[in-house]
Computed example of a mutant assay.
Amino acid sequence: MIKRILAGILVCIAASAAAVAQPYPSRPIRFIVPYPPGALTDLLARTIGERLGAALKQAVVVENKPGAGTLVGAEFVAKSAPDGYTLLMATSTTLGMSPAMYKNPPINPVRDFAPVLQVGTVNFFLVGNPSFLAKNMRELIEVIRANPGKFNYASVGNGSAHHLFMEILKKEVGLDIQHIPYKGTLAALTDVMSGKVQIMFSDATAALPNIRAGKVLAYGTSAGKQTELIASVPPIAETVAGYDWQAWQGVVAPAATPPKIVARLGTELQRIQSSSEFRDLLTKFGMEPSPPNTPEQFAAIVKSDVERWAIAVAASGARVD
């Protein structure tokens, strides 16, 4: 009996050793997207997954797990085995905004994940109706200050980046303008173009075609540096010093994923990110490629953003529970 037990133990040890010795990856990788199919993050994940799978010579299977402000998918990955076979297409919403809105969030953005690579950033455009009195950022601030409570701004919902960016701007320059939340960018932007509301922050995908068509007037961008997407729109920071906010997309793994696996993934993702073909795709998605970054640098960004988003959410008053 004892011999049989020992033999069984040895077989298990041998099997475990063989599994450990297998080169990574030896089976398909699950790539979790915390958004529904068809969303920007989903399209980006599928673009990355196809190229990462080819580089690793192993299938990368995209799975959509939306819900709870993207925290359903994030929690699933946080609780997955830290073996490199489950990854998350993370965003600043997932690891910044959403956790700050919950009293007891199901994830800790810093503790529960091993950042791999920040892929790109999403700049937001502050746009308004072309017939509005203000024609540039300085005039916009002056007109709203002179008419406290008279004007409205749209967003795609409480706690969204569109909402938070405006609340931060209101606080920094002392504006009294009312918030009208919508259920999506299209509805909000339609009312801006019709003059029902005066201004809103919009992501580049929706804003750029309408800026170029003259249907909306662009006052500035949320990021502190000049956007590469359209040279005629300056950063808001040219008028409001220090204003620098943008969303981002990146890839993370569960915490405690072996450093060698994180490094392997980071190397392959950097190669994908640096290709001109991929950078052109990001531009089509209304994104700008992030500068080359290491897992350590991305981890520092995540940590810094957790603190910034907590302040922004507190300023907005947005809460889920």
Rank of each mutant, 00 (worst) to 15 (best):
K3F: 14
A7Y: 14
I13D: 09
V20A: 14
P25F: 01
P25K: 07
D42K: 12
G49Q: 09
R51P: 00
Q58S: 12
V60S: 03
E63N: 09
N64R: 10
F76M: 13
S80G: 02
D83T: 00
A90D: 00
P99S: 01
A100N: 02
P109C: 01
A114D: 10
F125I: 06
M137K: 03
R138E: 14
L140H: 06
I144C: 06
N147W: 07
S155Q: 08
G159M: 10
S160C: 10
A161I: 12
M166F: 12
E172N: 12
G174L: 07
I180D: 11
G184Q: 13
A187E: 15
M193H: 09
M193I: 11
D203S: 10
A204V: 02
T205G: 09
T205F: 14
L208V: 01
P209S: 06
L217M: 10
L217F: 09
L217N: 06
A218R: 01
Y219G: 00
T221I: 03
G224F: 00
K225Y: 11
S232Y: 11
A237T: 03
T239C: 05
V251R: 01
A253E: 03
A253V: 06
P254F: 03
P254Q: 07
K260G: 11
I261G: 07
G266P: 04
R279G: 04
R279W: 03
M287L: 15
P291M: 11
T294N: 08
P295Q: 07
Q297T: 08
